[in-house]
Design a protein around this nucleic acid. Structure first.
Lengths: 180, 180
DNA sequence: ATGACTGTACCGAATGAACGGTACAAAAAA
DNA sequence: TTTTTTGTACCGTTCATTCGGTACAGTCAT
């Protein structure tokens, strides 16, 4: 089996336990692979596993989020398409954001640059939609940031309060937040 | 020295490294106390340290955030007072929220209930301000949640993008978000 | 006032378990 | 046969935790 097979499993583990909490024992158990097999597929160890997951997500964002924002239609339609994809990514708000998770613990120093770039890419894409619709560039950038803030915040609170409707509602209100 | 002395230090460590990343070696080094001494003050180990920090923060919220929301003045003034306090708590957006940090890793199962209660208390307090100003109760609850979402999200993105102005700006826009 | 006792604060060294990671040979697939 | 994959047994390190014990300030009874 190619190592790509295990990406969803790894993603789930890093989301649930974080970098420090996702031990090789847990990874071995969850993937069904022995340690030797894990190191065969990922010679770089845990870091390479995270790297692989991040690369996969970068690709996924490029194939799902960005096209949604470039689809035909008005701003509200585009944002709606994006939220449909985000809803898959975060499983309706049940799963936390692995990028946010990787911002703390031993992972921070290693992956911060990549996480930062991914966030910037997403925000810029949202800002571009607003600019194309005639919004001032500086304001569009802020509104893109506000959208990301709303999504990330709603994920935190969905986790904290065990209530995915917070993520759902924020998704629906995103046009209101952005175009106010 | 009483164990309360070490709370700020412990808070800093758990914020920076998370529960799993904040090892006893790090805690020992940061507090200047030997591991054995740590167990003298906190017989329950790391869990008791986190518990102590959470208890301290619960008290701090009760003495700072809630009074700010009950101060005299209109809604905007009250929210402004609260944001002043939050600015201290999060050091202008430089520090992440320890409650959010504790939502992942091995800590989750142990502290989730307490974190949930703390978030609910904060949100309810904000909602009450809105209700007193005449807002419909159900809408007020949602707007309280939206405020918490905005604060938490802005902290995440301040961390991710190395830009505390996101937290600052969100703080200033909080009345706009809540009373829109 | 003095010596015996007590409680609090602290620490160095050690514990077993678990950590991330490796060596190597058997086995399975090509 | 050759290459890829895997299980087993291990490595040194670090983990949370505990043990045995010191230092010292207070509190006694004498």
């Amino acid at each position: 089996m190619p190592k790509e097979t295990y990406i969803p499993c790894l993603l789930g583990l890093f989301r649930q336990y974080g970098y420090d909490g996702a031990t090789l024992s847990k990874i071995s158990e969850a993937t069904g692979l022995g340690k030797a097999s894990l190191y065969h597929h990922f010679p770089g160890g845990k870091d390479e596993m995270v790297e692989t997951v991040l690369d996969y997500l970068e690709k996924w964002l490029g194939e799902n989020i960005l096209p949604a924002l470039e689809s035909e239609g008005d701003v509200v339609t585009k944002l709606g398409q994006m939220c449909l994809r985000l809803n898959e990514l975060y499983q309706g708000g049940e799963q936390p954001c692995v990028f946010a998770i990787l911002l703390s613990g031993s992972a921070r120093d290693v992956f911060h640059a990549k996480v930062k770039a991914l966030f910037r890419g997403w925000i810029d894409a949202m800002a571009n939609v607003l600019i194309e619709s005639g919004m001032d560039a500086q304001l569009a950038k802020q509104r893109g940031e506000d959208a990301a803030i709303a999504i990330q915040g709603s994920l935190i609170l969905s986790q904290a309060l065990d209530d995915t409707t917070l993520f759902q509602r924020t998704s629906e209100q995103l046009p209101t937040i952005i175009c106010r």
